[in-house]
Amino acid sequence: MDKETAKKYLFDMIKIRQFEEACGRMYMQGKIKGFLHLYIGEEAIAVGSISELSKDDYIITHYRDHGHALARGMDPNKAMAELYGKVDGTSRGKGGSMHLFDSDLNFMGGHAIVGGHLPIAVGIALGIKKQKRKGLVMCYFGDGAVNEGEFHESMNLAALWDLPIIFYLENNQYGMGTHVKRSSANPEMLYKFADLYGMPSTKIDGMDVITVRDSAREAIEKIRKGGGPLLIEAMTYRFRGHSMADPSEYRENEEVQQWQKEKDPIELFKDYCYTNNILTEQETNQINGEVKTLIKECLEFAENSPLPDMSVAEDKIYNTNN
């Protein structure tokens, strides 16, 4: 990996990490409300896979969406303002943390009904195919979502219609407080669901950003060459609770600590960069500092943005541009 790419990867992962840490703090201060699901621990997936996408590609994801949005290049100021419920947010304060959208980036949203966005992802791929456009759909979802009927309906439709879509399963091993072993009959084999629909699939280490990048690159190339849908299962772990309301009694502290100590994607990537003489500690420290400034700015931006008024609430219920 060259220096510039390494810097970019590290910057993006640290940006997500610090953004999420700031969100957690601001939630405690009551600046952010509702349900807040942090992506801390899973940064390598968003950064490694989204960095391989082009402008024409679409992204759609679930409510744990900040990481994907920032990796795609969403303006952190606007994202934070949305979380604050302010008028300069991506949806002027109407969507909140679980529902970030940016159509300019083909970022088709965070969606908060588990499994609900999978058929929509299929539809976006159908739209691409029918209009003979370039591009594909990257659809992120969790291990909990594979148990909804919509997952299976979507997989079948995508395969049947041979659509340009990557089903990206972020297996952080828990759906809220329920471990995959307690929710899936064959928990080690989730990626094998693809077999039944005649779809290629792989299972990878989602904590290693380079592995994530390589598998995404391979999948994307296949689709660009005219291949059909694919599934990637990335093994990961969320370092924080499911949401800020999580009592955290369903897993051992030692389990969390062990993942943090041994598999932190940012630390792993830093080690890789040091070992291969790609970056120096001074350079990574500098990145840390740059991100810090950026996060400070986005908090200020959100704080200073005005609250929306009722005209905003009443606007855009219907498309009046008929």
Partner: peptide, 16 residues
Amino acid sequence: SMNIPMPYSAELEDQV
């Protein structure tokens, strides 16, 4: 409730 999908912002929700 007003005929509006619920906005996230607390100030708006309280009015809807």
